[in-house]
């Protein structure tokens, strides 16, 4: 494994508070794009607000953010544009509410994807996380709502979680600004290529499907050798996603 996921304590030493500037809506001339994805109601907008200094509406109500919001911050002289995506349970279906999130992750080419999850409901949230890891190889898991998890007596071993997922994991309580500096530091490390990931690949798939996926993804790789997510494209093709077929034809995403 070439990943060196850093635990929260490794990174907090590095965090350079003077280097951070919250830029609000000023999203011009950015160096990197950061996408915020996750299930509904896991605190994405709260993280977004904490980092950009904006006041996106947050609400304890699944499905609150329906369009994407954009903001920006500067860290160590680099400008980051941040996009708060609508919450989704999955990227596999064809329902319209996922469309925005899915298209952005696939075609918006974010430099870093922050996946915000609810620490008390990790298993359910991993459904989406594992899908996103098929799409992108530069992601960080933001294990949010840690205060609630503590209260509920849930303990998470962030180191082995990071090892399993192959991406950095940052524990946070966005509402109380805990873990946000570490998250910013990790985002910056990923964007600047100081940390690299080896994301988890979905394993428990029936043989005949795995074979079909492999065959298809090999063909796709022949055509687009630099594509990191040929497996995901194969999934989508097998699902019959017309949008993906269109894009394959035009070659838009490479």
């Amino acid at each position: 494994m070439d990943t060196k996921p850093k635990s929260a304590c490794d990174t907090c030493v590095h965090f350079n508070a003077e280097g951070l500037k919250k830029l609000g809506v000023n999203t011009t001339n950015f160096d990197f794009v950061v996408a915020l994805a996750g299930n509904p109601n896991t605190g994405k907008s709260t993280v977004f607000n904490a980092i950009t200094g904006l006041r996106q509406h947050t609400g304890n109500w699944p499905g609150k953010t329906v369009t994407r919001a954009e903001g920006a911050f500067e860290y160590n002289k680099k400008k980051f544009k941040m996009v708060d995506l609508p919450g989704t349970y999955s990227l596999l279906s064809t329902s319209e509410d996922e469309e925005v999130a899915r298209n952005f992750l696939l075609f918006g080419k974010p430099s870093v994807t922050v996946i915000v999850v609810d620490a008390s409901r990790l298993e359910r949230n991993l459904n989406l996380v594992l899908q996103i890891l098929e799409i992108t190889d530069r992601a960080v898991l933001c294990l949010n709502l840690m205060d609630e998890a503590d209260r509920n007596g849930i303990e998470i071993d962030t180191r082995s979680l990071a090892r399993e997922l192959g991406i950095p994991v940052v524990a946070s309580s966005a509402r109380f600004n805990k873990g946000i500096p570490e998250l910013i530091q990790t985002i910056s490390d990923l964007a600047n290529g100081k940390v690299s990931c080896k994301p988890h690949r979905i394993k428990n798939i029936p043989k005949k499907i795995e074979k079909a996926v492999e065959k298809l993804s090999d063909e796709i790789k022949k055509e687009y050798p630099n594509l990191p997510n040929s497996r995901w494209i194969a999934f989508r093709l097998l699902e019959g996603d017309r949008h993906i077929m269109e894009v394959l034809r035009t070659g838009e995403f490479v």
Partner: peptide, 12 residues
Amino acid sequence: DAAEIVSTTVKT
């Protein structure tokens, strides 16, 4: 997959 990961990393 998710269940496997959770079983090794989460303690309640």
